[in-house]
Amino acid sequence: MTTTTTPEATKHSGQVLLSVAVVLLGTALAYGTSQLPEASGYAKVGPRLMPSIVSGGLFVLGLLLLKESLTGGFHRVDEDEHAATPTNWPAFLWISAGLVLNGLLIVSAGFVIAGTLLFVLAARGFESRAYVRNAVVGVAIAGFTYAFFTYGLGLALPAGILPF
């Protein structure tokens, strides 16, 4: 059925990278653990115990994943199927931009403005280009939740440059 089959050699490269990332995460955690203070007391149980188990676990699991990815790929993950539906990266970037800008603006410009911007950008990611309408809907949603939380529940959200 699928017309776009990726060559065998590169087919599982994403899986290999991901497995290596898990191994590295385990290694980094193990290093961080070694920097923690030694357990005191008779029983030798302290803040290092659990991190040692977790970092060791991640390291081993990462190696097992790596082995799977190099020998035929992850169990029950169909790479050909993924190759058949290409990722819509522009959509991904629109939404990413919305969230990152939200993080940058939420305190300075305020919850309502940052939220509206997020709404318009994310909707653009979903192929909705009615910017004015989307801005109106975004203001309505963000404004309503702002009013409800700030005045209704007393949970203050940042007003930013808006006076209320």
């Binding site: 939404i95 969230l99 993080g103 940052a114 997020l118 809907v137 939380f149 949970l155």
Partner: peptide, 25 residues
Amino acid sequence: PMLYSGILIFATLGVFGMRQSAFDI
């Protein structure tokens, strides 16, 4: 588009509301 963008606004609301910190976004 409306549904998912709306969900994202609520997402930032809940996450920011917890500690009032842009770091969390």
